[in-house]
């Protein structure tokens, strides 16, 4: 069965997207990319040290990966737009993950400003993947504004709390005709699998892999979980029942 995820006209080889902000070194990132199978790698423009031979993270991202700069640090749509333009001008490609956060306490995205930035950047030809708080109306407006996918948070960023927004994400999966990528909050491979079983198109993970004791191995675990979750979704899970259904039922003597 063909099961390909296409975003911005590009067929992606993996449904696990990888964040890069919290690793113990940039040098480990290519190994995590390999073990996890991730093909879309997001990097904060604020962190890219273009001048440095050793510390420039771009030197550690394999050529066959899609670089997706993000607008971390943007407090409003205008700043996100400026960051996106700088990233493209610096040769970071056409993809942009919009992150507009004006709340440093919980790091929750500003949906309103995110829609504004999406509208501007989509018109400028960017492949726009906005990070958002799961909300149906916002998702519809993001689609209308030209987003190529929608990335609702599973839980506040960095919390590793899992798919706490499950019901809201499910509504987006059911209602929005765009890939829904669960971004932020997934702390364990089982939670990534849960999002995929629910029908998410992909997941984006950073903290859970980067801050584990063995990021390479944890990257592999997430990669496998995403595959398993997707396969389960496609297979169609059996119905959940309140009572056990024995193969030799107690009332079998009654006949049919």
């Amino acid at each position: 069965m063909q099961d390909k995820l296409t975003i911005g006209g590009i067929e992606l080889g993996s449904r696990l997207l990888l964040g890069t902000g919290k690793f113990p070194s940039n040098a480990i990132i290519p190994q995590v990319i390999k073990s996890s199978g991730a093909k879309v790698i997001t990097v904060a423009l604020r962190r890219i040290d273009f001048d440095s031979e050793d510390e420039n993270i771009l030197k550690h991202i394999p050529k066959d990966c899609i670089l997706m700069p993000n607008t971390s640090g943007a407090r409003n749509a205008d700043e996100a737009v400026r960051i996106a333009r700088i990233a493209r001008a610096a040769g970071c490609g056409n993809w942009i993950k919009i992150e507009v956060i004006s709340d440093n306490k919980y790091l929750l995205p500003d949906n309103f400003e995110t829609i504004r930035a999406t509208e501007i950047l989509a018109k400028e030809g960017f492949t726009v993947l906005p990070y958002m708080s799961p909300d149906l109306m916002t998702a519809r407006r993001l689609k209308d504004a030209g987003a190529s996918a929608v990335m609702p948070l599973g839980a506040p960023i960095g919390t590793n709390k899992g798919l706490r927004t499950r019901e809201l994400v499910k509504i987006l999966i059911d209602e929005i005709d765009l890939p829904i990528i669960v971004d932020a909050g997934l702390g364990r491979p089982s939670e990534a699998a849960e999002a995929m079983e629910l029908g998410a198109a992909a997941v984006l993970v950073n903290t859970a892999i980067a801050t584990s004791d063995d990021p390479i191995s944890m990257g592999e675990a997430f990669g496998l979980a995403v595959l398993a979750g997707r396969k389960a979704f496609l297979s169609g899970a059996g119905a959940v029942k309140d009572f056990a259904e024995a193969s030799s039922p107690l009332t079998g003597f009654l006949g049919t």
Binding site: P24, S25, L45, R46, I48, D49, S52, I86
Partner: peptide, 15 residues
């Protein structure tokens, strides 16, 4: 680096 951490030289970009 020896402590298993990454020294980050750049964490902002003039916009």
């Amino acid at each position: 680096y020896s402590k298993g951490f990454q020294p980050v030289f750049k964490d902002w970009q003039q916009i």
